[in-house]
Design a protein around this nucleic acid. Structure first.
Lengths: 219, 219
DNA sequence: CCGGAGCATGACGGTTGCGTGACGATGCCC
DNA sequence: GGGCATCGTCACGCAACCGTCATGCTCCGG
């Protein structure tokens, strides 16, 4: 929980702990982001009005770096703020004062959607593959693998959803930000990626193709 | 959208259409559920106070039958109602009067989580069968079963409605998106599926045919 | 016991989906 | 400006898959 008002933060932390959550508190976005990076939380509660980096920017960074659930808790009830926060990547938005039961229920609702989903981490470990999105490096059995930018982004996207099938469409839109385009493009880059991270290209163990559906990175 | 007040419903439908959504309106839960069953929507907006089946029950049924996004839009702002609706399976809850921009932003936020197709979330367990739509894999007694795309989609559809009979017509329209076609096609694929998930093809235990009605996946 | 409707199954051609190697365009560094 | 790395497009070939058909079986009512 990132909230600069001591009284509010303490009471919310206590109340959430009563509800069965394990909570860490931070007073600034910088502090909260660092804490989250060090040990990623399942969900992050963010106040909008913060000293330094403000809530919107904080949400944006959280969304860019991981897949944690993001819930904004703010005193501002202006539609414009709500829309902006959701657009920035927040999963839900509550107006203070919040009923703890509602907060808890909304957290559960939003995380239910997310179940089976990706675990937010600074470094994604999939078998003997380590992906460090921050550092921009990938290690296979501890050894650095030289990837191109596109290959790297592709692998990150697959890694963030390890175990899930991603369609070419999804990959195109998330890695290339093409809303439509030639799906064969994905094939080609998957092929190139395989040459670097698979031992036997003809029998992929890590980057598997699911015929008719797409590709997935094996957990 | 299920909303009994004509004025509110019409204005919301128009506003959402302006935002780029395709919307169908119903005035009762029964009507809305039937419409959704006939042609499932990506998301369902539900009012709480409805004649006949009320909003809570409606949410519960929607959640049980499918994976559509469910957003409750109600005049009631009581924490108890909000918690109850979310617990029943709603993904979000807005208090009337709603700002259309906020509704639209919340819809997008909630659907962002699981964009990318007709594949439902979660893992369906039916006896010793595990179906993981997201991972595109099926396990029988823990062991992976190699299915083709069509077999997989078919099994997902049956799994989502485990225990209930689905007619060939329904399967054709949901799996193949054929509104009419040769019903024998379903038979063939059911047969192929059986060869992979049944121990004794001549005496199916899991994928049962209900003579004259269709097929069902035994719970 | 018989006939018909409903269902199962095996075989077969056409199609689709995927992997790969080659090629030109582009941008970057020296 | 030349050399290099990377990117996107294309065409080709193989294998898997799909849908159709024909045949034969099973269940049920008369």
């Amino acid at each position: 929980m990132i909230e600069d008002d001591d009284r509010i933060r303490r009471s919310l932390v206590l109340a959430l702990e009563d509800e069965g959550y394990a909570v860490r508190g931070s007073t600034t976005a910088e502090e909260g982001l660092a804490a989250h990076r060090a040990e990623p939380a399942d969900a992050v509660l963010v106040d909008l009005m913060l000293p330094g980096i403000d809530g919107f920017e904080c949400v944006r960074q959280l969304r860019r770096d991981g897949d944690a659930t993001i819930v904004v808790v703010s005193a501002r009830d202006d539609t414009h703020d709500i829309v902006a926060a959701l657009e920035a990547g927040a999963d839900d938005y509550l107006v203070k004062p919040v009923a703890i039961k509602e907060l808890s229920a909304r957290l559960r609702a939003v995380r239910r959607r997310n179940r089976g989903g990706p675990i937010a981490t600074g470094t994604i470990v999939v078998g003997d593959l380590e992906i460090r999105p921050e550092a921009g490096e990938v290690r296979l059995r501890g050894e650095l693998v030289a990837l191109t930018r596109t290959e790297f982004l592709l692998l990150c996207e697959l890694g963030q959803h390890a175990g899930q099938v991603l369609s070419r469409q999804q990959l195109l839109s998330r890695v290339w930000e093409y809303e439509f385009g030639d799906e064969r493009l994905v094939d080609v880059h998957v092929g190139r990626l395989r040459q670097k991270i698979e031992d036997d290209t003809t029998a992929p163990r890590r980057l598997v193709t699911v015929r008719g559906l797409g590709y997935k990175l094996q957990r």
